[in-house]
Amino acid sequence: MDYDKLLNLGMELGRRLMASGAEIYRVEESVQRLLSAYGLEPQVFAIPNCLLVSVTTPQGNPITSMCRIPSHGTDIELLERCNQLCRQLCQNPLPVEEARRLVGELPQGRRFSPKILLLGYGMTTAFFSLFFGGGMQDGLCALICGLVVGSSILFAQRLTGSNVFFRTVVNAALASALATLLVKMGLGSNLEAITIGTLMVLVPGMALTNAMREIMAGDIFSGLHHTAEVLLVATAIALGTAVPMLLSRHL
């Protein structure tokens, strides 16, 4: 049996899982089960930006592979596909080449076009501003804000950089400034509802739930990592929103 190839197979699946925003225990468990299904006894260790897999061949040679995981968003479709493939391979271990090909095909799942994603952002912000007590006009304002913030998230990543903190500050400032502007122009009336509705797409809800799940699952390190991320992003939102607010007060 080709142990290098098997290790690469496990590594690839783990990497895809991590990139889809899966919890750490899910990544570790999936890689563990997959390699166990091929008769290995792997050691798997993952933290939010690193994945380590190690196996020992029957001859006693240890082989280890390490992969650094870049910052990523959430892709539930990819997560579901990985999960399904993993379960399938665990029940019925295909030849390594075949399995490798299937893992390679994972990212080719269905994906929404940027237009639909933008619509998603707009819908979220518009309905959240209604949810927070805004009127129909405020919803319309929030829709505009959401489209702008959404396009900033989707298309302007090169300008705002890869730093989560800075990116969130810029986006929150953009949302707040636009909301203030629209209210000053007289289109909306409830500034709070518009701003909060727009901020909901930036709020780190996903990191918050993941952090707690990981702490409860015993992955204290990853849990703390995500908790720190939540606090950082929340601070960034507050900072970014404060800037236009202060400016509008003194202008």
Partner: peptide, 13 residues
Amino acid sequence: LACVGFGLVFNIQ
């Protein structure tokens, strides 16, 4: 409705 919108962002099909 808001969460249906956000589901699109998370690529839930």
